[in-house]
Computed example of a mutant assay.
Amino acid sequence: MKQFITAAVFSFPHEITILKHLLEEAGVHYYFENETMADLLPMYSYVLGGIKLQVHPNDLETVNYILQKLDTSGNNLKIV
């Protein structure tokens, strides 16, 4: 996992729920750093620097497209 890079940072666990589904649907290899700690102790998310979406550099363009589409699609699923 040393080759993975941070593609985005989120503050709360609920922000990544839909994103997980979209990433899996697209076949992107990813993991969320600090996700477990944020689930257990939500206020620790700030101390840890947020929930970090880690992806392989080869998937970065796809992830950026998914994030942009999710944020600007005009639905109620925008990333906060």
Rank of each mutant, 00 (worst) to 15 (best):
I51W: 01
D39M: 13
Y30E: 01
P42K: 14
N76M: 11
M1T: 09
E35S: 06
L22T: 05
E25C: 02
T62S: 06
L53Q: 08
V55L: 05
F12Y: 06
F4H: 08
I51V: 12
Q54A: 09
G50V: 06
V80G: 09
S73R: 10
L67W: 01
D59L: 11
L60G: 04
I51C: 04
K69C: 05
T36M: 09
F32R: 06
G49T: 12
E25A: 12
Y31N: 08
V63T: 03
L19A: 07
S73D: 14
V80F: 05
L19F: 04
L40N: 04
L23W: 01
D59V: 12
N58E: 11
A26I: 05
Y30K: 11
F4W: 01
L77A: 12
L40S: 08
I79C: 03
G50A: 06
Y30N: 03
L60I: 13
Y31H: 13
D59N: 12
Y44T: 13
I79G: 00
Y46E: 04
F32T: 06
G74F: 05
L67G: 06
L70E: 00
P57I: 14
V9H: 01
S45A: 15
K78F: 03
L60R: 13
A8L: 08
A26N: 06
I66E: 00
L19V: 09
I18H: 11
H29A: 10
N64C: 11
E35Q: 14
Y31I: 09
P57E: 02
Q68E: 05
V28H: 02
E35L: 15
A8Q: 11
K52S: 07
S73E: 08
F4R: 11
N76Y: 07
L41G: 00
V80A: 03
Q3N: 13
D59R: 13
E33L: 13
P57L: 13
A38L: 05
N76F: 11
G49Y: 04
I79W: 00
A7R: 09
L67I: 14
P13W: 03
L23V: 07
D71K: 13
N64Q: 15
D71H: 13
S11G: 14
E25Y: 03
L19C: 10
I66R: 07
M1E: 00
D59C: 09
V55T: 09
N58Q: 14
G27I: 11
